[in-house]
Nucleic acid binder design. Structure first.
Lengths: 247, 247
DNA sequence: GGAAAATGTACATATATGTGAATTTATATG
DNA sequence: CATATAAATTCACATATATGTACATTTTCC
């Protein structure tokens, strides 16, 4: 069950992140198609908690820096080491495609850092973007780091759906693809989940964290180059990852 | 009316900002005294939206960097000019008390930047902290920037409460205090709202934004020094504020 | 290795909550 | 300055939602 008002808080936050200017109750209500009274309650709640204020008279609400203060506190713990951002930054620059660091979230894989391609046609992904762990290159690069028992436990919760022609729709299919990936030396996906999207990924364990790096883009552009992209990823990780410790 | 699940999202966020480590469903439910099933729904919603993930197996949930990404996008608009942080930083260092930048939010005043005193006994305030606009030095320094009509409109919404012995409990009392403040050259408060708390504030208009600076601390320590603290604030603003333009 | 404890998940139901309509307040217009 | 129009609040009620209970899964402990 989705908790509507919880989701609405996030929607509002994203709304402000997008429009980047104060908005009145009426504007917000109209934008989302929410009743004014409901919007009123929500805004009052966020204001009361210190997350919204009125920067100038009659110009409406805008988030206070409290969001930022909280997010900073949260993120200063175990941040990703700086070289991982360098990594996807370099990869995106060299390949012209979108590169990301990905982490597990149950049966999904979450993008926790992204550098987008600058191409007009590109893989559009943002931090927080989620994809099925079993039907994506990045996700399978995570699964490779699991023990058999852990994988089984994940499999039990997966609802296998035919997202595309090549989506693995059974546990066996996934396991086979994992074995192939090991043999191949990297994970790949050709529209397994998103139409026209292809990508290459490799596991990226950092400390006891299970992460992966992925480079993805439109199939017609990146498709033929997947092997060399994979090699590039491996080389770049090798170059940037500190040799001394696990971190 | 307060929207409970909206507030809960913020609570969860603040919880993570405090504990700074992943937490399981059970831990979160117990911490807040929420039913497991409700907690489950909330966490599922936040996860689904890409704001929570599971950094390592069986270690529970933690916020994704998406919070930070959103907060950054929101805050890069019209950020406070850097000299305002310098201002409260200097003021806090010189006085040993807590210094803040404050903005209006209806009948309340919100702290939008804070540098805390390092003293053991101090005014504990965080970004997002809210106080009644009419019963605080910082709030009245905002009201001074309003037109009479705007002030009247605010007064109509205020519920006058006797927070402390010197709280102004009528429109006239507030207006008188505002006139006194003008004569005096700064706003002051002696436990008008918070027990044992005294402070000095002055208006700080920036562009068309109505802000104020306040220095506040325990009455016994800052009380006798309020006039000189006020003078210090004025001098420091004068020193740091760029002379050229309104920004 | 098996039982017990803890944790996570599903669902029907009572109830807390969102909302439409009414009221008040603010702003624009003649 | 009066009137019209739009925005912000309030409130009672129907309904969408949180939760108690039951079940499943995982982990711990003996």
């Amino acid at each position: 069950m989705i908790v509507r008002q919880a989701a609405n808080v996030l929607e509002i936050m994203e709304f402000f992140a997008q429009v980047k200017k104060p908005a009145t109750l009426a504007e917000i209500a109209d934008h989302f198609g929410w009743p004014r009274s409901s919007t009123f309650n929500l805004l009052a709640t966020l204001s009361e908690k210190g997350y919204l204020y009125e920067p100038r008279p009659r110009a409406g609400f805008y988030p206070t820096p409290r969001w930022l203060a909280m997010a900073r506190m949260i993120s200063e713990v175990e941040p990703l080491p700086p070289w991982t951002h360098q990594l996807i930054s370099d990869l995106s620059a060299e390949t012209g495609e979108t590169a990301s660091i990905v982490a597990p979230a149950g049966v999904m894989a979450v993008f926790i850092d992204v550098v987008e391609s600058k191409a007009a046609i590109r893989y559009f992904a943002t931090i927080g973007h989620r994809v099925p762990i079993h039907a994506t290159a990045s996700g399978r690069a995570l699964l490779l780091q699991y023990s058999q028992e852990e994988r089984d436990s994940v499999y039990r919760k997966i609802e296998f759906k035919q997202y595309g022609p090549s989506t693995p729709i059974s546990i066996e299919a996934v396991e086979i693809e994992l074995r192939n990936s090991i043999a191949r030396g990297y994970c790949q996906s050709f529209a397994d989940y998103s139409r026209d999207l292809a990508g290459a990924a490799i596991p990226l364990p950092i400390g006891d964290r299970r992460l992966s790096v992925v480079v993805a883009g439109p199939e017609f552009r990146i498709g033929p180059k997947v092997p060399e992209v994979a090699a590039l990823i491996a080389r770049t990780v090798d170059r940037l990852r500190p040799k001394t410790s696990a971190a």
